[in-house]
Nucleic acid binder design. Structure first.
Lengths: 215, 215
DNA sequence: AACTTGTCCTGTCATGCCGTCAGCTTACCG
DNA sequence: CGGTAAGCTGACGGCATGACAGGACAAGTT
């Protein structure tokens, strides 16, 4: 699979080295969630990890390189999001439940990784292919199975066939991502955080099935 | 109204000064659309403007301060977005048209200002109040009148009353913003850029009215 | 215990950007 | 033409960057 962990100059990292490396990543993650991305400096991360800038550069080419590492870690974790949609039913009473669980699970995941996802989102928007790919991995964990669900409903004649399932799924996932990243915006619209789920879920259900949620 | 333009150390800027200042802003805007935000340096902006870093610091406290300036300019411009919704009808055949024009206008605005909006979005997500406010100004230009439209439809019994109009409007605007910022994501889902509008418009219509778009 | 080997860390250095200030130049006005 | 305020920059201390060489350290060998 992935070869062993290597330093920038090609050596293989041993136990102690991996620990230091991990500590640097942890401190960077911490740093990202407390200061603006633009202000995160190598020297601060190194200081927090109780080591020197030179050590940082032994394991990562620059801040961005280390961020990518964290992001890839998170992208693996995003695999669990698949379960929120795959194999779930959108028919009858279970439909709204599926929708609610999806919204809830997605928001929770985003909240848990908000700092790193912010940077990934920025990188992707700026056209960086590596960040773009990572963002797609996360979104696809939900979008792919969701598109399948829409396709199935269309085939059964239970949804509007004039819409592209990929577009619908993509739009819904985009909505969830945006809502998760900017929860404060909803607060300022008078929608409390705890009301976010009950308001988003019917919209997702509406998007997938094309009809109002039954109550 | 707004006092005259002032330098950081309190002098009032004259004709020449304002020109230099504007040139710096223009170069910064250009810079933002060609390099990652993290890599935009004062010295590069100054060089591009054919002046010195010290001059930059005469007009702006730092890069962020100058970016805020550009963003505020854009926020004013966003006022025109109101017309995409205010006074438009969602009934009958004109509904889908309204929806299409909204999607089209919004995407166009975002595309035109994508570089600065990227930074605003990041700043808002990082919790910076100034950027958050600017982002809300832009989104509210659409979200407020859209929420009004939903309220009216609900009052007439033509839309689902169990949903919070503010939440619905907010969600739809979030969707549009996210789609605009990450058009490439849709491309990778097999949705061509020119198919974005025809796919988003029905979803917006669906969200506002709660029913399928008539064809 | 001395030696070897390869990993791991840091002191140091050249380079370049940051942000400030004093002082020079330019434009305007009476 | 002289005064005044605006406008610009050279120069500087401070700090981050990124590279390297050499020393510390752990683990196994003789």
């Amino acid at each position: 699979m992935t070869g062993q962990v290597r330093t920038v100059d090609g050596r293989v990292a041993g136990r102690r080295g991996q620990e230091t490396r991990q500590k640097l990543l942890d401190c960077l993650r911490e740093m990202l969630s407390t200061s603006p991305y633009r202000d995160v400096k190598v020297i601060d991360v190194a200081r927090m990890a109780g080591t020197s800038p030179a050590t940082f550069y032994q394991y990562f080419p620059d801040v961005e390189g280390a961020v990518l590492e964290i992001a890839e870690e998170m992208a693996k974790d995003a695999d669990t999001l698949k379960e929120l949609v795959a194999g779930k039913s959108w028919a009858g009473k279970s439909g709204p439940t599926t929708s609610e669980e999806l919204v809830d699970g997605f928001l929770a995941f985003w909240r848990k990784n908000d700092a790193i996802l912010r940077v990934v989102t920025l990188g992707a928007a700026e056209g960086d292919k590596r960040f773009f790919k990572i963002r797609m991995t996360v979104l696809n964990a939900v979008a792919k199975p969701l598109a399948e669900a829409v396709k199935e409903l269309q085939a059964k004649g239970q949804a509007d066939k004039s819409l592209d399932p990929n577009a619908v799924a993509g739009a819904l996932v985009s909505l969830l991502a945006s809502a998760a990243e900017h929860q404060k915006a909803f607060t300022s619209w008078g929608v409390k955080v705890k009301d976010l789920k009950p308001n988003l879920a019917p919209l997702v259900y509406l998007g997938v099935t094309g009809k109002k949620a039954p109550k």
